[in-house]
Structures are given as structure tokens and as C-alpha cells.
Simulated scan of single mutants.
Amino acid sequence: MNRRTWTVVFASTLALALGVLGASLPVPLVALGPGPTYDTLGTVDGATVVQVDGLPVYPTSGHLNMTTVSVTDRLTMFSALALWASPESQVVPREPIYPSSMSLDEIQQQNNAQFTSSEANAEAAALDELQLPATVIVSSLVPDTPAAGILQPGDELLAVAGRPMDSVREVSDVLGPTHPGDTVAVQYRRAGEVRDVQIPLAARPDREQGLLGVILGARLRDGDIRISLGGIGGPSAGLMFSLAVVDKLTPDDLAGGRFVAGTGAIEPTGTVTPINGIPFKMRKAHDEGATVFLVPAANCEEAVATNPGDLQLVRVGTLHEAVTALESLKAGGPVPAC
């Protein structure tokens, strides 16, 4: 073969090799995009998402949709390029989503734990908003604090500093004037046995008050709340779960027939914290017919910049603010906007 023929053969072989590699060789990237959205007032696969037993439940209308982000893994060079060019996706490094230090099973377990925690936080926040008597539960413990060697997950917290506990907020209120190193009396129930202990308080980086070292949840004292939505991970559905509980347990119809969607992790005291992926969540909600989107206050700037259409963006910092905003929206009043 002459030089020209050899050049053609070499170039063809190289192109074929690059094509095979580009189509099969994985790259350390994932693609984020809009995920499914679910109405927390409705049913999914025949199961009621938020079920309340033992208390009067009031009719609801409209939607209170939680939103999600999809993650496409195992990208090749070609698929990554195609998704990078798509306005529906964002290609990002894989490591923050799937840390190499963890197996896929461990990551899934972590996501499931976060989702379970969001369900517990949502119930606690809703009970606090409704001022319903609750049983305060130790959900988990902060490592390397005195409480971690005394209390256990599942313990019922009966009293702190001599004050009976009916909500997670009451625990926070009691600890407000304390300082690291103080000792606080704690009464709790474990396996039916009531116990009294003295627990030294640790330091916390964000406040001057003492840290008891427990992550608390709450469950309805007279009745039962069940949140059922399998196959979802992460903490960002907490706000919408809480709103569904409040809506079902109050005569006011929060959604008022509107298609309201939103996102936001929630703490047991009702504080709404920021989340990731809000552009994709808003896009899916808009495509499904939502007209109102509840945005954690810290996500407002990003939400305004990526609003996919004419979604009305409502800024919320707490569950109470979200409830008040929906009530005002229903009455035709002003709402805090992003």
C-alpha cells in the first residue's frame, strides 16, 4: 500500500478506536435534570402519601407537590457531551454526588436515612405549628457529646430541667439560657421504664447556648401520622410533607384549588433550609401545571434567575411563613416574593 492508503487506514482505525472509547468508556461525570413530582395531598401507586388517623381530617383541594432532581450516572464521553448540550440537563463532577469513599449501597442507605429524617422532621414541625401535644423522641445523637453515652435513639424525652416536654420547640426554649458545661436534668422513658439523669451540655459552633447533643423528632400523642412515599432519597421534601399534614388537620384549605409546588428541607422546629437543584424542580413543576412555587429564602436568588416561566415564587423561611403565605394567597392578599 502506498503512503496515502496507509494514511487513510490509520485515520480510519484511529477514528474507530475513538468512537468505541467515546461510546463505552465511562467518565467521572453525572447529569442532573428534572425528576418526578408528587402531590403530597394525593396518592402514589394507590397509597395515600400523608395518612392521619385518630384526629378529624378535613377536605383539601388543589395540589401541594414535592419536587425532585433526577441523576443520570454511568455517562460515556458521547452521552456526557449530548447531555451537556441539552438545556434540560446539567453535567457535573460525579464525586460530590457519589463519593468514591462510599459504596453505592452506602450512598443509597444515606439517602434513605435523610428521607426518613425529613419525614420525621416534617411531622414534628407540623405538630409544633398546630400546637398539638406530641411525644418527643430521640432520633439520633451527636457524636462525642455526653448525651451520646447516656441516651439512645427511640428514647422518649419526658422532661428537661423539670419542665414537661410536649414539642421539640419546648426543648430548644428550655436550653436557650444555658451555657456549655452546665448540667441539665433529663427525664426519659426507655422500654417502658422512666429514668432520670443529669447530662452535661456540650459547646455548639453556631450559638452560645449549651448543646444537649440529641437530634429530636416528635410523633402525635393521640393519633398517628404516616408518610408513605418509597424510592425517594434526600431531605428536600420536608416542607411539602409538613404543609400536607397541616392542610389535612385544619379546616382551612391551604392550596385553595391551586397547583402549588415547592421544596425545602425542614427542621423539627419549622425552620426551612436551602436545597440543591431548584432550577430542575421548578421546570418540572411548571411543566406539570404548577402556578405557585414555594422557595426556601436562601434559594431565592437562584430561583429568580432560573424561573422557567411565569411561576409565582413565594419566599419561605419557616413552616409558619409558608402556611401564612398560602392563606394570604387564597384570600387574594400579598405574599412574600423572591
Rank of each mutant, 00 (worst) to 15 (best):
S140M: 03
T43R: 02
A218M: 12
R163L: 15
D144R: 05
Q51E: 10
Y58A: 14
V69K: 03
T48H: 01
P26V: 10
G332D: 15
G217L: 06
S140W: 03
L18E: 08
D45E: 01
V184R: 02
D182Q: 13
G332K: 13
G264S: 07
G181R: 12
P334D: 04
A82P: 00
S103V: 14
N276W: 14
V197I: 02
V69N: 04
D144M: 02
E156L: 07
P93K: 07
S117I: 04
T67W: 07
D287F: 07
V292F: 08
Q152E: 15
I137R: 03
G231C: 02
T273N: 09
G309W: 08
L211I: 03
Q312D: 06
Q198G: 06
P180Y: 12
V69W: 04
T43F: 02
Y38F: 14
A134L: 12
K284E: 12
A297K: 12
D173G: 04
G270M: 03
A303Q: 12
L249S: 10
I150V: 13
L29Q: 03
V214D: 05
H286W: 06
P279V: 07
A305L: 03
Q110S: 15
I150S: 09
A298Y: 08
R163G: 06
T178W: 09
D196M: 05
V184K: 03
S228N: 02
M240F: 11
I266T: 10
A218N: 04
V272L: 11
A124K: 01
P153Y: 07
T5E: 14
F280E: 13
A126M: 07
D252C: 00
I225T: 10
A85L: 10
A191E: 15
S101K: 12
G19W: 08
G234I: 01
E119R: 01
P93D: 13
R169C: 01
V292C: 08
L239K: 00
G176T: 10
P180N: 14
V30D: 07
V92T: 10
I278D: 04
S86T: 08
L311K: 02
I227R: 00
S328L: 11
V27F: 10
G33I: 00
D53K: 14
I107D: 05
V246W: 14
L16M: 02
